[in-house]
């Protein structure tokens, strides 16, 4: 009986200890990556390429996500508000919903799907084909050359994507508002502008920066720790997307708690 209890406890304890060890390793690795971001040499060409890959090429998917979300949000708020005669709050709620929550979270998730997978697959393939070892033998630190530019680029560009996504999402709500819900265009825009505060947008941009960091960190971590062969790279890619998505949602809750809890 005692053995059974000990076995059950060990069965719970072992994965918990493994998880804690993993969190410790990722945290130390992230600290090392940040220190490489701040110390020369800086690889500006790789940084520029990462900005294009992470920021510019993610614009269409973030924009599409935002416009449809803004439109759907306007319809939902109108239908919900209708139950207690509050249909007029559509512009304000669409604006605050997009700026504080949906813009950064959906933008972050879309970037996680597009970018974390691509970073993990690229770095994982480089690892299994010995390109990472080749970098080292060519006196180039992979942390500085591969990881730091991607982390910096994602941390700086995702807030910009969020800002663009916010604007497009609010525009989606406005389009639905004036074409489907009989709002006056000028009134809709005035209500949006009057209601939205600087911190509503600012908090979303801070979230964007944190989510961008998470996306690049998970992509790079899983790529650098990829297993051998196609299966190893595939598993690293999947793990990068899943872990980035879960961490984005968890970080979103924590940041919302910090920024807006009463």
């Amino acid at each position: 009986m005692t053995d059974l209890v000990a076995g059950a406890l060990a069965g719970i304890g072992r994965p918990v200890l493994d998880l804690l060890a993993l969190i410790g390793r990722v945290t130390l690795w992230a600290a090392s990556a940040i220190s490489h971001m701040l110390r020369p040499p800086f690889y500006w060409r790789e940084f520029g390429q990462a900005v294009m890959q992470i920021g510019w090429y993610s614009l269409p998917v973030v924009g599409m996500t935002a416009i449809f979300t803004g439109g759907a949000l306007a319809l939902q708020i109108y239908a919900g508000g209708n139950r207690f005669g509050a249909e007029a709050v559509v512009p304000q709620i669409v604006a605050i919903g997009m700026a504080r929550e949906l813009g950064p979270v959906l933008g972050g998730l879309m970037v996680a799907a597009r970018v974390a997978s691509s970073i993990a697959a690229e770095i994982g393939t480089m690892k299994v084909t010995e390109q990472i070892d080749a970098l080292t033998t060519l006196s180039t630190d992979p942390m500085k050359y591969l990881v730091a530019p991607r982390l910096l680029a994602a941390t700086l560009t995702v807030p910009v994507l969020v800002a663009v996504g916010d604007s497009i999402g609010i525009m989606g709500g406005w389009l639905v508002g004036i074409t489907r819900l009989d709002f006056n265009s000028a009134t809709y825009l005035k209500n949006t502008a009057d209601f939205l505060e600087v911190w509503d947008v600012g908090s979303g941009l801070v979230k964007g920066a944190v989510f961008g960091f998470i996306v690049a960190l998970m992509g790079c971590w899983h790529g650098m720790n990829s297993g051998r062969g196609a299966q190893g790279v595939g598993a690293a890619t999947k793990a990068a997307v899943v872990s980035a998505s879960v961490l984005i949602l968890a970080a979103n809750y924590l940041l919302t708690e910090v920024f807006f809890s009463a």
Binding site: M126, E130, Q131, D133, T137
Partner: peptide, 20 residues
């Protein structure tokens, strides 16, 4: 010192390990 040490070496990898 890593940089000075590695600067003395060249290496041909099994799969060439060229940067795609």
């Amino acid at each position: 010192e890593r940089d000075a040490f590695l600067a003395r070496f060249g290496m041909l990898f099994q799969g060439s390990a060229l940067f795609d």
